[in-house]
């Protein structure tokens, strides 16, 4: 089963001793079966917050507003038990850091057997043979033996493959990969991207890929959302975003040096200035302090979401359809 995903007017704030951090504000996104969605933006702009909210795994100090519907069901209205049943069955999250994603004192095989707990119809032996097959599919040789390894006995790239295999084992309708390659070196990164490109050919659910690497997004995704300081500032088809960006922030990102797309970057190319403090988000455009095109209304009036085409939107006063 796979259905469409839609988040509308989604806001998340984290309660902290220093006040609330408004990490996500009025975000609208949608995704349909068969699509690969990219989410890109500077560090701290709320990418992980967004996907963790989608996977229903926000930490205890997070407060969520707005709605997330998957396959026509409003996730926020489900009770905790139903939400748990959905996780790891319909929705799978491949986490940001493969080094710490697995339990250090249990074998890979043991954990992957547990992760299939939704499949009550399968015995332990069947689950293990599914694991072996899946590990083979993500390019791990000698799968039978690897299953009896502890996480620390595998390399980072191999662990990331195992993490992807674990997610695929549950046959999810929505697969979320939060920076699947950030912790890896360039060679490993290329291999994982290759793997994900292959997967997307045979997979008909939704894939959401978070990255601050524009090259990864360009290679893997159908559509992209560009985030800045907790808001989606522009969204559209990959072609539209990379060749016809309309929001000044997206343009600045791309202008930095498109030739470096295929290089391994620690973070997004730098733009002068720093993002606003999310404890007190500005009342006007969040990008105004750094925008070279800012004009009168930008500092005080929040810009509307301007629809440029069927799928291309940008949140800016200077943009006209």
């Amino acid at each position: 089963m796979s259905g469409s995903l839609a988040a509308s007017d989604l806001s998340v704030r984290y309660e902290t001793p220093h006040g609330a951090v408004h990490a996500l504000r009025h975000v609208d996104i949608e995704a349909h079966p068969g699509e690969v969605i990219g989410i890109v933006g500077e560090s701290g702009c709320g990418k992980s917050t967004l996907v963790t909210a989608l996977a229903n795994l926000l930490p205890a100090n997070a407060r969520i507003d707005g709605s997330i519907s998957y396959n026509g069901v409003d996730l926020a209205k489900l009770d905790a038990h139903r939400q748990r049943l959905l996780r790891g069955d319909e929705i799978a999250l491949v986490s940001q850091d493969p080094m710490t994603a697995f339990n250090p004192v249990l074998t890979i095989g043991d954990q992957l057997v547990d992760f299939q707990h939704h499949r009550k119809d399968l015995g332990r032996a069947q689950k293990r043979s599914r694991i072996a097959a899946m590990l083979g599919r993500v390019g791990i040789a000698d799968a039978e033996r690897r299953m009896d390894c502890y996480p620390h006995e595998l390399s980072g790239g191999m662990r990331q493959r195992v993490a992807i295999a674990a997610a695929l084992l549950t046959d999810p309708g929505l697969l979320i990969a939060d920076e699947p390659t950030t912790a890896l070196d360039v060679t490993m990164e290329a291999q994982i991207i290759h793997l994900m490109r292959e997967l997307r050919r045979e997979y008909n659910g939704i894939i959401i890929v978070v990255s601050h690497h524009l090259g990864v997004i360009a290679e893997l995704c159908d559509r992209v959302y560009v985030m800045y300081a907790g808001e989606v500032v522009e969204g559209g088809e990959v072609d539209a975003i990379f060749h016809d960006a309309r929001h000044p922030y997206t343009q600045a990102l791309l202008a930095c040096d498109p030739a470096r797309f295929h290089e391994k970057l620690e973070r997004l190319p730098t733009i002068p200035g720093t993002p606003p403090n999310l404890t007190q988000p500005p009342s006007g455009c969040v990008y105004a302090p750094r925008c070279d095109r800012a004009f009168a209304p930008c500092g005080s009036v929040a810009p509307p979401l301007v629809k440029l085409s069927a799928s291309h939107v940008a949140r800016c006063h200077a943009v006209t359809p």
Binding site: L57, R84, R87, N103, F115, H117
Partner: peptide, 26 residues
Amino acid sequence: GEPHIRTARSFGLPEWKIVSKYALRI
């Protein structure tokens, strides 16, 4: 609070199993 517990959660493992197997062993 360790990330691997979040992984176990993200696969929807019941809380008692996370506590008694994934956390207790450590």
